[in-house]
């Protein structure tokens, strides 16, 4: 399963904003950190604003901040904003109506269901715990090396 650019940008942005809740971070800062297009990310952030997950803060030092519940918002919810996770809009492919096509679809559905269940079980907060564990497990890790200036990491959950 490969996520689309917009989805990856949304997840990068949300996780960055959850990780540093005391800061407003601009689209340009996030884009630079993850090596993605700032223009594209700005559009993604507008979608996230409409979805009620982030809000923009105007003025000097302005940017975006997360306004959802990181212990409740799952990867599946975010991905569903940008991709057809249910497969409901995908058009039938040639051969789908054959016996072999139907058996193949059943196997692919099994994979999709497992993927969906996995994504629906991981909240933004849980994903950041995975990040923290990975960082802690690295020898001579420098967890604040890629943090924005004056980080104020989210309290442990």
């Amino acid at each position: 399963m490969k996520l689309q650019k917009a989805t990856r940008g949304a997840l990068f942005a949300l996780l960055e904003l959850v990780r540093y809740p005391a800061q407003q971070i601009s689209a340009a800062q996030i884009a630079e950190r993850y090596g993605i297009s700032a223009n594209h990310l700005a559009k993604v952030l507008r979608d996230l604003t409409r979805a009620g997950l982030v809000e923009s803060v105007r003025g000097a030092g302005g940017g975006y901040r997360f306004c959802g519940n990181a212990k409740r918002v799952t990867l599946y919810e975010v991905i569903s904003l940008f991709e057809d996770t249910a497969g409901s809009t995908s058009r039938p492919d040639p051969g789908d109506d054959t016996e072999i096509g139907q058996a193949l679809a059943r196997v692919m559905n099994e994979i999709n269901e497992i993927a969906a269940a996995t994504l629906a079980s991981i909240t933004l907060s849980t994903l950041l715990k995975i990040v923290d564990r990975d960082v802690a497990a690295r020898p001579a890790a420098r967890p604040s090396a890629d943090a924005p200036t004056g980080p104020d990491p989210t309290p442990g959950t």
Partner: peptide
């Protein structure tokens, strides 16, 4: 169970992975 979102999210939050 695949649809047991509550417990799945709980065990994930404790650090369990596939």
């Amino acid at each position: 169970a695949r649809d047991d979102g509550l417990n799945m999210a709980f065990f994930r939050s404790q650090g369990m992975m596939g």
